[in-house]
């Protein structure tokens, strides 16, 4: 039998923590944000860099998944063009509730410097966005900070059915 070190002076002497359902569910959700790899352009490179050696995204519980059905966070990293717009909607619809969206970089936020015929002027015209990260391209630190703020946002929510699915319209 495994020997657990139990501090009998804390938590009523038991190796347990008492909490509410909300807190434990939100703890689970916020610390295992599986992100959909949505590298569209330059910001996608910084997203990869934050997943790589120096910035080590895994310590936030953020693992990149290639399938929308396995992920609950979509990091839209890069310029969304009008030709691509329908695919982002498709992939967003395939993600399971609850789902969150981070819009990374100026192009995804507002169209940024590409004020042209071919770019969607902000990804929030297509899907609802939770967090906007400024920068062109934002540094990996910005993305990490953004994920921590998103975790904070998730913790502030009620975990039960009261959480309404987000709709753009």
């Amino acid at each position: 039998m495994a020997q657990h070190k139990v501090n009998y002076t804390q938590d009523g002497g038991l190796p347990v923590a008492l909490t509410s359902i909300d807190k434990i569910v939100n703890w689970g959700r916020s610390n295992s944000l599986w992100a959909l790899t949505y590298g569209l352009a330059c910001c996608g490179i910084e997203m990869m860099a934050s997943g790589a050696s120096r910035y080590d995204f895994d310590r936030y519980g953020t693992i990149f998944r290639a399938s929308p059905r396995q992920s609950d966070l979509m990091i839209v990293a890069g310029t969304l063009t009008k030709k691509h717009a329908e695919f982002i909607k498709r992939l967003y619809d395939q993600m399971t509730e609850p789902r969150w969206v981070i819009s990374m970089g100026s192009c995804a936020n507002t169209g940024g410097m590409f004020n042209t015929y071919a770019t969607v002027q902000g990804v929030d015209r297509i899907i609802p966005v939770d967090l906007y990260l400024p920068g062109c391209a934002p540094r990996p630190e910005t993305l990490q900070y953004g994920v921590m703020l998103l975790q904070k946002k998730i913790r502030a929510n009620k975990a039960g059915n009261a959480q309404k699915p987000k709709r753009l319209m």
């Binding site: 717009a85 329908e86 042209t116 071919a118």
Partner: peptide, 14 residues
Amino acid sequence: EGDEFAAWYEVDKI
């Protein structure tokens, strides 16, 4: 910045 068609392309389509 595109014409009228381009401005509404993605909204109309989706």
